[in-house]
Amino acid sequence: MKKLLPPPDRPAPVRLGEVQRMMAQAVMHPLGTRQRMRREQAAVASAIIKSNDRLSSFSRLQIYNQQYWWRLRDAVMDDFPGLRAVLGRRRFDRLVEAYLDSCGSTSWNLGDIGQHLEAFVGEHPLLAGLCPILAHEMVRVEWARAVAFAGAEEPRLDPQALASGDPCGLRIGLQPYLTLLEVSHPIDRILGRVKQGKRIRTVEATASGRTIYLAVHRQEFSVFYKRLEPGEFHLLAALRAGDSLEAACAEAMGKSGKRPSEFGEVIQLWFADWMRLGWLCEWAPYSRPTDC
């Protein structure tokens, strides 16, 4: 193959970064009516992309514009089928478009596409239709499911460390794949119906007025939803926040409404259950995704 030589006296072409920025902005610009690229992108298209005998520069750029939106929308749809069932197709598409336009994808991993959706839906309740609280709770649970599916697992806590540690100073961590959630709708049951392709019942879409305490976790590489007792939830939440075992127990007992003798009995059962499930590990600071 003949070796190419860079032409020495040609004027410097448009910089790579500039071409990429122009194209990326056009590609990530929301589609217009009938899923077509918006007319205002024609100038960018003709400035950077050649036409050929079959396709105009506009049509060629449109291919990438459409692929971007369809690919990312499908990725959100795959991860949030419950949200789609709650909102319906049209409202879901509108929400996702607004979300992607605002936050985009800031990770090389397409699986992270929904990491800011909880915050976004919380900040834009009007986009979530007639039931913004249900939609918000659904997003929280579905993101927790993604975390449970592929989140890290730390070495399980040695039962000896638990038995011999000083409760005043002992801090216990929870597995990173475990998420604790307070919700007002039976999201776990709604997701069960969605998985079976069934419609969401009105009674399920209506807030029950009582809090449901939910742990989203995995067992043998499958994701599960486990309902917790209030005291159990508060104890786990306090441990995750970094409270010592003693302080966490005191806080949980206060919120449980149980007498100390009663609480002492159930606490042993809870710990036995959590150890069996492998939820406990050494304590480490816990972080959650934030705004985009």
């Binding site: 072409p13 790579l16 590609v27 990438y64 690919r71 994808s105 800031t106």
Partner: peptide, 25 residues
């Protein structure tokens, strides 16, 4: 190919402008 700008990812395999600058980079 290229696919992200300023930390925003397209998740696509976008074609390169075939320039000498692009070769170098």
């Amino acid at each position: 190919c290229w696919g992200s700008v300023d930390g925003r990812y397209t998740h696509d395999l976008l074609p390169m402008p075939y320039t000498w600058e692009a070769v170098k980079i």
